[in-house]
């Protein structure tokens, strides 16, 4: 436990000691700003026609997916790849630390940082609320469930990123692998929207794995256990794969 906490602290600290963390936060802020202005202009165009919760309006802009798809690889790429490249992986792995502690600490560190980058969204929402003084626009339940959804989807993308990073010594390759897996999963969920699947079972499968539909539900305030199971099980799967990659060094 002590080693785990030490590693999480180091992992999170690594973002702020170097410039990376600030650059990521700044870029996310920029994209959030764009989506915020988009949200505001749609409110201005038809202030009385807005019935959907604000969170859904936010989520409806494509910026959300852009942020997710772009930042996840960048946040996770250094977790293992940089340590392998610089050689500190060897000093780390020759301390009495368990492999699963390392994997879990890397995941926790990136996850905490991911959540941190999303916090400004609260600020955006609070501004709208302050200016409109309209309680229906923003209710605490949908905000909470939206953040819950963002965190869940983040779990999946961070674990995928850690897995990709564990595979290679190069941060660029790690980022590309996790971007491709992440984009693939996202495109699969679009596919269910664009050409309607012919078979009944196919439609069901696609809707089950559709990230877009999941987020739609979360933004509306529906917290569906099926979605939770989907994200958590995939996260566990990727963390398990990461652990196996880390352990493979010690296979005979």
């Amino acid at each position: 436990m002590r080693a785990y906490l030490t590693l999480v602290r180091r992992e999170l600290g690594g973002f702020f000691i170097s410039l990376t963390g600030y650059v990521i936060i700044a870029s996310v802020l920029l994209l959030l700003g764009f989506s915020f202005t988009g949200m505001l202009s749609s409110l201005n165009n038809d202030p009385h026609g807005v019935v959907a919760p604000l969170t859904e309006l936010f989520y409806g802009t494509f910026y959300f997916w852009l942020i997710l798809l772009l930042t996840a690889p960048v946040i996770t790429m250094r977790s293992f790849a940089f340590e392998k490249w610089s050689g500190t992986y060897e000093t780390l792995m020759t301390t009495p630390v368990k492999d699963w502690q390392v994997v879990l600490a890397k995941f926790t560190g990136t996850m905490l940082f991911y959540i941190l980058t999303w916090l400004p969204l609260f600020g955006c929402i609070a501004v709208v609320r302050y200016l409109t003084r309209e309680p229906t626009v923003l209710d605490p339940w949908t905000t909470t469930s939206t953040f819950f959804g963002i965190a869940l989807i983040g779990c999946l993308y961070m674990s995928m990123g850690c897995f990709a990073s564990a595979l290679t010594r190069s941060q660029i390759i790690a980022a590309m692998i996790s971007f491709v897996i992440g984009l693939g999963l996202f495109v699969l969920s679009l596919r269910s929207l664009v050409p309607a699947p012919s078979a009944d079972w196919a439609a069901k499968v696609f809707s089950y794995i559709s990230l877009v539909e999941h987020m739609e539900d979360f933004a509306r305030g529906f917290v569906d256990t099926r979605h939770i199971v989907f994200y958590l099980s995939l996260t566990v799967l990727f963390l398990f794969l990461t652990l196996k990659v880390v352990e493979s060094r010690r296979w005979k």
Partner: peptide, 10 residues
């Protein structure tokens, strides 16, 4: 101490 002494330079 491994070869080339890797450290967290930051």
């Amino acid at each position: 101490m491994p070869e080339n002494n890797p450290l967290h330079l930051d």
